[in-house]
Write a protein that binds this DNA or RNA. Sequence first.
DNA 1: TGGCGCTGATTAATCGTTTCACCAAAGAGG
DNA 2: CCTCTTTGGTGAAACGATTAATCAGCGCCA
Lengths: 316, 316
Amino acid sequence: MASIKQIAQDIGVSAATVSNALTGKGRVSKELADRIRARAEALGYRPSSAARALKTGQSGILGLVMPDLTNPLFPRIAQNLSIAAEARGLGILIADSRGSEARQTEALQQLVGRGVDGVVVVPQKGTSPAAPGLPMVTINTARDPRNTVSADHIGGGALIGAHIRELGHSDVVLLGGDRVSDVQQDRMRGMADGLGPSVRVRTVWGDAGLAALPDLVGQGATAILATSDLLALAALSELARAGISVPEHVSLTGFDDLPFATAMHPALTTTAQDVGAIAEYALEVLTSLIAGGLRPDAGHAVPMQLVPRASTAAPR
Amino acid sequence: MASIKQIAQDIGVSAATVSNALTGKGRVSKELADRIRARAEALGYRPSSAARALKTGQSGILGLVMPDLTNPLFPRIAQNLSIAAEARGLGILIADSRGSEARQTEALQQLVGRGVDGVVVVPQKGTSPAAPGLPMVTINTARDPRNTVSADHIGGGALIGAHIRELGHSDVVLLGGDRVSDVQQDRMRGMADGLGPSVRVRTVWGDAGLAALPDLVGQGATAILATSDLLALAALSELARAGISVPEHVSLTGFDDLPFATAMHPALTTTAQDVGAIAEYALEVLTSLIAGGLRPDAGHAVPMQLVPRASTAAPR
DNA sequence: TGGCGCTGATTAATCGTTTCACCAAAGAGG
DNA sequence: CCTCTTTGGTGAAACGATTAATCAGCGCCA
């Protein structure tokens, strides 16, 4: 309710002086500035973001496009982005792209219409959306040419792979959820790299892969490496149903260290991504882009961390 | 880039007419309106939300304050609110209150500063924040006097309780996570109601309660009713460690039907809340509040639904 | 003493849209 | 032929903040 004009009138100065005093830009005497600030405080003055946005052309708001908020990892990204944004005095407008690629571009358009200064996009599996003339960063994985920053999914896979190799496993199954996902592809590749050439590696996907697990164990596999914690949990259930116990008969790993990873029995060995660092870097690049900076030429990969728990052990 | 002025100049009319034509408010001839719309389309015109917000005093943006985005239920609320908001042409600005109550009021202030038209708040456990002179709805539970709409946690608990009673159980343990949570208190009360007076009910909380489960089963308990799926998963692990199997030795239930409920083994019996309906109602009230309507005097409860799966069975 | 430079503040324009008051032209009615 | 109403449109003032340009004093030095 209280405007800059109100304060100006109360103190008996011009609106410009109030603006200068409050933003510290023009030349205002120390005492007057103090009086103005005091009056502003007393009135509970909040600058109108609309007016400021109109005049300056900057809304101080970033858009965030997420593929599907029900995937438990994305909220963590959202939360960390929101923290990083707040530290810079920015707000975050969310738009859920709800599974469809069409909806994704629509969400982008809508954000543009709302006057956001830039957007952070976590693309739908297998897509690479573009915003026309709007500063934008992408969080995906190394495989995506438009990627700006992401966890080092390949490196994370390699950590898991090496961990399993060092435990002495030599016959391993890689379990993926969705072939279309670039992230999962990279995790797969990383795990294969980490396991090295001396290990027998078989790859299966989706529900069919899940169902095939008991057979594969019967054929000698001693470790199952899933591309996500949720998939690992499903695998654990499937194995339990078949009377196969973890980690006694077979080792099991996941990805992402979701909240339920410690609630499972056995607690799941997995890798954690530093979501905070990813969010921080994403906003770093985005703000520099908004300020007219150049896009860094290559995607930035934030290392993942191995979280060894009870679900992995040496093979019998 | 293209403004209303631009279009006006191109067509050779005044800015006011363009505004009228585009919003359909004033009196403009059909043909002229068409020409204006066509030109606007051609220029890719998007009204400046900042200018509109400044003039009308309405930003078309709602704020959303969430206690902790890492709780898997909240993202679902966020997603459904975002859907409901979009259907009304509104945007959603998120603010994470990150566990602390101080942060919660700060988040609220920040949203006010950004000029949101109203806020949806999911309060921190045990708190009831207020926004000064800002339309606001609260999603919590019946216990909260400020509650606007929520799942019927008591009714949901009653469903679970009745389900267990009908299976023939007569010695039941209720497992809660956090005493401070109004939601969990209501779920507890509902479950006790549903079980009825003829059933022996013992209540335990948190990690200590979790650790006590095997003993309680040893003392004759045949069912464990947790106030959340995550807690149920932890309980399952604890039981498995003690060699107690579900549902053979003891039945187990959760709350909320989170994604991993089906991935567990056995699949978890739980109750689902109709998050879509909650979000829809919340926005219904909020938009009416913004339009100057009156707050409904009582909180609205959306029924929960029982989702029977494999983790519950008749006692042996 | 007249001009220069500095400080501290003011004026006025501007961002893009909405909206109210007003007006010209044209047809209706007497 | 004169007034009254309707239609289709224009003008101009806001909304609240920012900012470049300007200006009034005042001290200082030559």
